[in-house]
């Protein structure tokens, strides 16, 4: 197995929908090198895709002059993924989507990306700077998860 501890991989994506696939593929490759099982890799791919779509659509407002940074950092026991955009970030953590409320038109059928991210990784954190010009989401998946 390739030694991955301390390795860092960075990708810059244009703010154009579809390019989240590049980040998904990169994250999957690094996670595979680290020895994550296939189901955890699939969860990570979905979480990374949602984070990138949020960054492209909401953070950078589909402005193709701005890029989305994806930084993957491997350590002994975990893989950290930061998805960075030029937006102001979010003001509050996402609530769990309520299917009943969606059924009755009381909740937007969309707006599930952040909940999915939180559900699919071991740690998710949304961070923004005080100027409101930079924000990132930090995702972590841990190698010992399957042994818990």
């Amino acid at each position: 197995m390739v030694k991955t501890t301390g390795a860092s991989v960075e990708v810059r994506l244009p703010s154009r929908l579809g390019f989240e696939k590049v980040a998904m593929g990169t994250a999957a490759s690094v996670a595979q090198l680290m020895g994550f099982p296939p189901d955890r890799i699939e969860d990570l791919k979905t979480a990374v895709a949602e984070a990138c779509i949020n960054a492209i659509e909401h953070g950078n407002q589909l402005n193709e002059k701005l890029s989305v940074g994806v930084i993957l950092s491997a350590s002994d026991h975990e893989l950290e993924v930061k998805v960075v955009d030029n937006g102001a970030g979010i003001s509050k953590q996402p609530a769990k989507p309520d299917i009943d409320r969606k059924m009755h038109g009381e909740e937007d059928p969309r707006g599930m990306g952040m909940f999915l991210i939180q559900s699919l990784v071991d740690e998710a954190e949304w961070v923004h700077d005080s100027k409101g010009t930079n924000s990132y989401v930090r995702l972590v998946i841990r190698l010992d998860k399957e042994n818990e």
Partner: peptide, 13 residues
């Protein structure tokens, strides 16, 4: 293949 949250929203609709 992949279904993102926007796609899930369409399915829920």
């Amino acid at each position: 293949g992949h279904i993102d949250s926007g796609g899930v929203g369409l399915i829920i609709t």
